[in-house]
Simulated scan of single mutants.
Amino acid sequence: MRPQEPRTIEEALARARIFEGDYTAAHQAASQRRITEQLLELRWMQTLAEPHTGSARPARAPLLLHEQAAVDLRALCQGVIHDDDAVHRLARFDTFRDSGGALAFACLLVLADREEGAQFWLQFAAGGGEATGALCLYLLHLRRGEWRDARHWAQQMSALEDWPSQYTPVPHEVVDAAPATCGGVKVYINLPDHGAAIPESAVKGAMEDLDVDQVGDFNAVPQPSPELAHQLEDLVTAGR
């Protein structure tokens, strides 16, 4: 049954009125928190979308934020695996699980589109003090649109910038950071001129025969093979 139509303006206004007792102070505080979080999220995204100070990249049409993160992540991984020490660290990584070897292996997995395994080893690298690992995770989550996870790794990267004895094959620097409550960060990545990029199809071919183990909550974590370092050395040499 349809409700009875209001007969006067006063009756219509009375029905539209929000009575004070309907909303408590807790409701108001929760609403304010949601609005604040949304404003901080917007501010963080706007900060990241601005041009990076000091960037040497040529002028081009601006990309969407997640698209730029995807481009930066793959370029960063190419820089890591072209580093002269990457092959040696990868060769040792089969026996000694050091954080620098984890970073090199994870970058190969990124380029081979084996993202779940890459995320595991990037977390391993970042946990070992590698700021570059945290930077890769920041870009990875930014590409997915996972803003809170991206903020977390941005903060971790800033904290690890001066960590001693870390492996930094591609120099990078935090050039502008938003307030701590916002968690945004802009990074200058000094990508080396290493010649032609290694074709990602070749990287995928080199990673086809990796062993896969279940580790914790990760269903399929690729493990490095002893031959992988030699394959990487061949790929880098062919690209020069």
Results as ranks from 00 to 15, higher is better:
residue 222 P to Y: 03
residue 153 W to S: 07
residue 68 Q to G: 10
residue 239 G to Q: 12
residue 106 A to K: 07
residue 122 L to F: 09
residue 37 E to K: 03
residue 116 E to Q: 14
residue 226 P to S: 01
residue 75 A to L: 08
residue 119 Q to M: 06
residue 202 A to I: 00
residue 58 P to F: 03
residue 237 T to K: 10
residue 218 F to M: 01
residue 102 A to L: 11
residue 152 H to Y: 15
residue 166 Q to S: 09
residue 32 Q to L: 08
residue 218 F to R: 10
residue 105 F to R: 02
residue 43 R to Y: 12
residue 146 E to P: 04
residue 68 Q to H: 14
residue 225 S to A: 15
residue 8 T to E: 14
residue 77 C to Q: 08
residue 159 A to T: 01
residue 120 F to L: 07
residue 172 H to K: 05
residue 108 L to W: 13
residue 217 D to N: 02
residue 69 A to G: 06
residue 187 V to F: 00
residue 183 G to E: 01
residue 4 Q to T: 15
residue 35 I to H: 09
residue 12 A to R: 10
residue 217 D to F: 06
residue 6 P to A: 03
residue 21 G to F: 05
residue 66 H to E: 14
residue 151 R to L: 15
residue 194 H to A: 15
residue 80 V to A: 00
residue 233 E to Q: 15
residue 8 T to L: 12
residue 43 R to N: 10
residue 80 V to C: 10
residue 202 A to Y: 11
residue 79 G to P: 06
residue 168 T to Q: 12
residue 30 A to S: 11
residue 192 P to G: 01
residue 42 L to I: 08
residue 130 E to I: 08
residue 10 E to R: 13
residue 111 L to S: 11
residue 62 P to W: 06
residue 55 S to E: 06
residue 111 L to D: 08
residue 148 R to A: 15
residue 200 E to V: 03
residue 26 A to M: 07
residue 48 L to G: 04
residue 23 Y to L: 15
residue 127 G to R: 13
residue 9 I to H: 09
residue 119 Q to I: 02
residue 46 Q to T: 12
residue 16 A to N: 11
residue 98 D to A: 07
